[in-house]
Structure formats: structure tokens, C-alpha cells
Design a protein around this nucleic acid. Structure first.
Length: 592
RNA sequence: CGGGGCGUAGCGCAGCCUGGUAGCGCACCUGCCUUGGGCGCAGGGGGUCGUAGGUUCAAAUCCUAUCGCCCCGACCA
């Protein structure tokens, strides 16, 4: 039996000063975790117990669809050079040398190791599909660890990888993961949502993120109030209300208007008495790309046009640019490249605009135009001339975009692309991510199998992750009040804490012992608070440490009853001592 | 990586400006007392003041460097 008196459960009355978010404060105060270094934590008794239960659930569900491996955390440099990621990962990768001076890194993820196994061992389509998973530490030297266990440098991830003979097979593996993840998070008692995620530059791949709404999160998710549509900001779309175009001025061709000193969208719109919706927002950027012939890095001008009241979404821009990174141009660069003063830049008359052929951009400046401007007329843009703007600007007629693309961020209140309902935006934490990888690793690392026809083909892969700590953290974020938190019984370190109000009273002690023993015999996880403390201390601790039910053994034992308190609601109920086991059977068994 | 803040006892903090050899609350130990919401009384233990250098008769305090941690931003398969 677990007796509090003998255990190490170092609860704190006060949270460490540097804890900001609820889960961080409470997990430290409740004695679950202690910090060792920035973004590196030790899990103490209660934390580890809860963690083990989470791992148990994940393992059970993953075993239904895949096979558990355990891969090294220490990887040789060569492996990561094969996939090209030794260079890409930069400072986020922990790197070290062995005694001979050879380079190693600590694994941030395990695509490379898994693929290295697959390519050695998988020979035939008959061996596919495979789903391999592991529960392992990951190391990422985050630029800024924060929020307790939410963003750390060493953490535990369940990561799995699927190998299929073709995209249809990948669809099946992907679906299996989707369903397994739902079962896992349901069993962990989390309120979560599944959102479409932006799938990067590889094209055609699919990705979903499993998110838990909480202000402590660092992602923004968009969801519909009326239907099931949900996506992260990098992917979310919306239907825009139609905008009335301005009436033609003069002969309908672009015409200059004098706008002395009016540089911002708001200034110009107010000055001309029009809505920012009828204005074109022109952004000048520099993209870094690699010269196709020489392989050397080179800069490329990118001009982005948005509706005046819209905001650029950098993830979408990156997708539109096939993953290239961009930065804003400096004023002198704008002058130099476009011969225009900053603040009066516009698309009409821009020289050397790239043309796209089959989605490939030719030479010159890339002119990307947000789809919200497609089909619009008589807009107002900069005239590329100090103190002048243009009226009557019509895309497609007065300038030719290199491409139209979805480039703007959705805002709350816009219409759902599926049903037209209202969209809302919430901050959330990502607890799981499933991703159709495609051929990236199997291709670059040379995994090949023979298909039915004896032809060599590259298996298609998927990769799927769950942040194990984040399940615990999200649960705490979702279930707390000023006194502490409560976990769903399935992931709580104990399901029931039995609290005799006075251990010097033999009747109370004996009754509490008896109840604890019977509950344990019935298969419940019970913590007996046998400390010689005042009741107040024990109640405060019980409220703090995340155990969902408390049995208070006090005065009422003379009447043959004890109190059962549900931590989440503070609901209190007198239950007969004789029937206590049955009471919890009814309460907790269905959840198992 | 840019901006800001903080390092003094296990936790939370004061002292620093104006240098004089370290203090408060909680926690901890002993005894008494108390037992339905962090109880009371008495006694007690515990600190290289992040580290290194400098200024000074004297440095937690002033100067320089450095390390660590936190926050905002950038970044985030």
C-alpha cells in the first residue's frame, strides 16, 4: 500500500517565481517535476507514475496498429548527412564529438534511423506495410525553452513511421494512426480537436495536428462554430464577404492621384475616402534561394500583394515559394530594385516580373498575389513615385502576377469555407501530429523494394508523433483552479486519496487503512495519507496533487460513513464504509 | 539571435541607490500544545550573497567580465 508518510511528495506552498503557466506552477508545487536546467526536467514519484500511465495507454493503442522498437538517441553525423538534415537543423540540433573526434548528434526525431533499418531489411512488397514505433527521448536545443514542460529541450515522444508500397497503402496507415490517436487522447480524458495542418513544401501530402485549446499554447487554430471545420493558422482558409469595387475614375485606365505624405494603408484610405478593402497592400521581400546551376545561394526579389486590410501569413508564403525563407526588404533595397520610394510601391509598371511555367518560376522578381485580389477591379495602389498613388488598378489587366496564391491569415469572425458559419481562433498546444512524409527519406536514403512485377520501387512513408509530456501538461491546463489541479483517473498517479483527518485517533486510522486496503484489492490505485498533519494541511495537499477523488475518513465513521469528494467539482457525498468499494466500482469502472 | 529582467538559506523575498562583515516569511529540527481547510507557544540548525577579476582599510552593496535562469520578439521536423 502507498502511504504518504513514507513517500517523497515534496509539495510547495508557493510556486517558483519563474513559473508562468498553470501547468508549470502546479506540476512543480505538486511535487511532480523539478527543473534541472533550462528546458530540462526531472520527473519525481507522482510525475513518473502519471507519466507511466500515459505511456501505458499509448503503448496499448499503438500495439494494435504497429510494433514497438527502441532506437538509439545518439546518432552518427553520417546518417543525418544522408538525408541532408545535418546541415538543415542548425543550432536546434545538439551535437557532440566522441573521443576520436567523430561527430554525433542527439536525435531530434528518428526518420533517419528508422529508414536506415528499413533500407537494409525491407526487400519485397510482401514485407509491406510496416508500422514501427518507439517511445523515446528527443533532444532539441530550442532557442527559447519555456512554459515548464510545454516547450523543453529533452522530452519523450511516441514516434512512429509507416512504410507502404504505394500512396493508397499510406492512406491506410495514416488512417490507422488517426484513429489510434483519437482513442489515445479519448482514453487520456483530454478535450482535443483535430485540425488540418500545413503540410510543407512536398506537395500532395496530408497532415493533421491534434490540439488542446489553452491560453498557454503557442499555436493558433481556426475552427468553425457551426461545423467540424478546423485548421491551424498556416492552413486555414475562409470565405470572404464580397467587396464592392470602386467606380471607374475617368477613362478606366490607371490614373495617378496626388497623396502627399500618405504612406500607410490607413492614411491613404482615409485621405481618399475609401475603405482599405479597395487598396492593394504591397510588400517587398527578399527570398534566399539556391542557384540551380552553380548551387550558390542567391537573393531574389519577391513582391506580395494583399488586400489592404489583410495580413500576410508567412507559412503560406513559404509554401507558395516552395519553402524558401524570406525577409522584408530595406528601404534602400526597394529603391534600388524597384526604383520606387518605400511606401509608394505598387505592382503597375514593375519591370522584370517572373513568369511561371508549369508552376516553375522563371527569372526576375516574383509577384505573388493573394487570391482575395483575383477578379477585383479599380483598386488603389502605390504609383512607384513619391507622393502618388494609382486609381483604377485592375489585376490581370494592369499587371500580370507570377502567380495567385492563398497568402493571408484568416481572422476571427470570417466565414467558414465549408458551411459559411463563423470562424473562431484559439490558442492551443499541439499534442500529436500525423504526417504523410512521402518519399523524402526513403528516396534520399535509398530504401527500395521490389513490387509484384519485380520492379524496384521506393516505399512511401508516414511519420507520426505524440508529445508524451504534453498530454500531462494539457490535462493540467484543462483541469485546474486556484488550489491545484485534477487529472482524469486514467492518467492520475492515484485514483483515490484516503485521508484520515487525525491519525492519532485509532478508529479513524483503522477505518482508513481498511478502506484503502479494500479499494486496492478491488484494483484501484490508492494513496493513504497517513501523515500526522492537521486536516487542513492534508486537504490542501490532496487538492493540489491531481488525484481526482478523495475519501475523507473523519467524524462520521461513528455513523458508518465517510465522505467522497470529487476534486473537479468539489461535490461531496456521504458513502457507507461497507459500500465504498461498490461505490467506486460504479463510478470508475466504466471509464476503464 | 535582438530587447528586457533576475541571481542573497529548500521556496518566496528584503538589504544594494548612500560600502562597515546578512535579515524576514514559509519550510526544516527539538519540546509542548492542537486536530474538518496550510493551528499556537518556546528553543534551534542552515547562506562560498551565481562565478572570476578589479576599486577600497573594508564589497551582497561600486566597476569589469563571465555563467545561469526567466519574460517579450525572431525561430520552431
Amino acid at each position: 500500500m502507498h502511504r504518504w508518510f513514507e513517500l517523497f511528495i515534496p509539495t510547495l506552498r508557493e510556486a517558483p517565481a519563474d513559473a508562468e503557466v498553470a501547468s508549470h506552477k502546479f506540476l512543480v508545487r505538486a511535487g511532480y517535476i523539478r527543473q534541472l536546467s533550462a528546458g530540462v526536467y526531472s520527473y519525481l514519484f507522482l510525475g513518473q507514475r502519471s507519466f507511466n500511465k500515459i505511456i501505458g495507454i499509448v503503448r496499448q493503442e499503438m500495439d494494435k496498429i504497429g510494433q514497438e522498437f527502441y532506437l538509439p538517441a545518439l546518432h552518427p553525423r553520417e546518417l543525418w548527412e544522408e538525408s541532408g538534415r545535418w546541415a538543415v537543423m542548425g543550432d536546434t540540433m545538439f551535437r557532440l564529438k566522441d573521443r576520436k573526434g567523430a561527430d554525433y548528434c542527439l536525435g531530434m526525431t528518428h526518420e533517419e534511423v528508422m529508414t536506415s533499418i528499413a533500407r537494409k531489411e525491407l526487400r519485397s512488397y510482401k514485407q509491406l506495410p510496416q508500422i514501427w514505433y518507439q517511445i523515446q527521448n528527443k533532444f532539441r536545443d530550442e532557442a527559447r525553452p519555456k512554459s515548464g514542460l510545454l516547450r523543453v529541450r529533452q522530452f519523450t515522444m511516441k514516434d512512429s513511421y509507416s512504410f507502404d508500397i504505394d500512396p493508397a497503402g499510406l492512406d491506410v496507415s495514416y488512417r490507422k494512426h488517426y484513429d489510434a490517436y483519437c482513442r489515445i487522447f479519448d482514453r487520456c480524458g483530454l478535450k482535443y480537436m483535430v485540425v488540418e495542418a500545413h503540410s510543407g513544401a512536398m506537395g500532395g501530402s496530408q497532415s493533421h495536428e491534434f490540439m488542446v485549446r489553452t491560453p498557454a499554447g503557442e499555436d493558433q487554430i481556426v475552427s468553425c462554430e457551426s461545423c467540424s471545420y478546423a485548421a491551424n493558422m498556416e492552413k486555414a482558409a475562409s470565405k470572404l464577404a464580397p467587396v464592392e469595387d470602386l467606380a471607374v475614375t475617368g477613362d478606366g485606365n490607371p490614373v495617378e492621384v496626388h497623396t502627399p505624405g500618405q504612406k500607410t494603408i490607413e492614411e491613404v484610405a482615409r485621405f481618399l475616402g475609401v475603405s482599405p478593402k479597395n487598396k492593394i497592400k504591397t510588400l517587398a521581400l527578399i527570398a534566399n534561394e539556391t542557384d540551380a546551376k552553380t548551387g550558390k545561394p542567391k537573393a531574389r526579389a519577391v513582391v506580395v500583394l494583399l488586400r489592404g486590410d489583410h495580413q500576410l501569413n508567412e507559412a503560406k508564403l513559404s509554401t507558395a515559394l516552395a519553402g524558401k525563407e524570406t525577409r522584408a526588404m530595406q528601404e534602400d533595397e526597394i529603391r534600388q530594385v524597384f526604383h520606387s520610394p518605400a511606401g509608394f510601391l505598387g505592382p503597375v509598371g514593375l519591370s522584370n516580373v517572373a513568369v511561371a511555367t508549369n508552376g516553375v518560376f522563371g527569372e526576375g522578381a516574383i509577384l505573388l498575389v493573394d487570391t482575395a485580389l483575383e477578379g477585383r477591379k479599380n483598386l488603389i495602389s502605390g504609383a512607384n513615385k513619391e507622393d502618388y498613388h494609382l486609381k483604377n488598378v485592375t489585376p490581370g489587366r494592369d499587371f500580370q502576377p507570377t502567380a495567385y496564391a492563398d497568402l493571408r491569415s484568416v481572422t476571427a469572425g470570417e466565414a467558414c469555407p465549408n458551411c459559411g458559419g463563423q470562424l473562431r481562433i484559439d490558442t492551443a498546444v499541439e499534442i500529436g501530429h500525423i504526417f504523410k512524409l512521402g518519399y523524402k527519406y526513403s528516396q534520399s536514403m535509398g530504401a527500395r523494394v521490389l513490387d509484384r512485377n519485380g520492379k524496384e520501387v521506393t516505399p512511401i512513408m508516414g511519420s507520426y508523433g505524440i508529445g508524451m509530456e504534453r498530454i500531462l501538461t494539457a490535462a493540467v491546463e484543462q483541469n485546474n483552479d486556484e488550489n491545484g489541479f485534477w487529472l482524469p483517473p486514467q492518467i492520475a498517479p492515484f485514483e483515490i486519496v484516503v485521508t484520515p483527518t487525525n491519525v492519532r485517533d485509532e478508529m479513524l486510522t483503522n477505518t482508513a487503512e481498511d478502506i484503502a486496503r479494500r479499494l486496492e484489492a478491488a484494483g484501484f490505485e490508492v494513496l493513504l495519507d497517513d501523515r500526522d498533519e492537521r486536516p487542513g494541511v492534508k486537504f490542501k495537499d490532496a487538492d493540489l496533487v491531481g488525484i481526482p477523488f478523495r475519501v475523507t475518513v473523519g467524524k462520521k465513521v461513528t455513523e458508518g460513513t465517510v465522505e467522497v469528494v470529487r476534486r473537479s467539482t468539489r461535490e461531496m457525498l456521504d458513502v457507507s464504509i461497507a459500500a465504498i468499494t461498490e461505490y467506486f466500482e460504479k463510478l470508475l469502472r466504466p471509464a476503464r
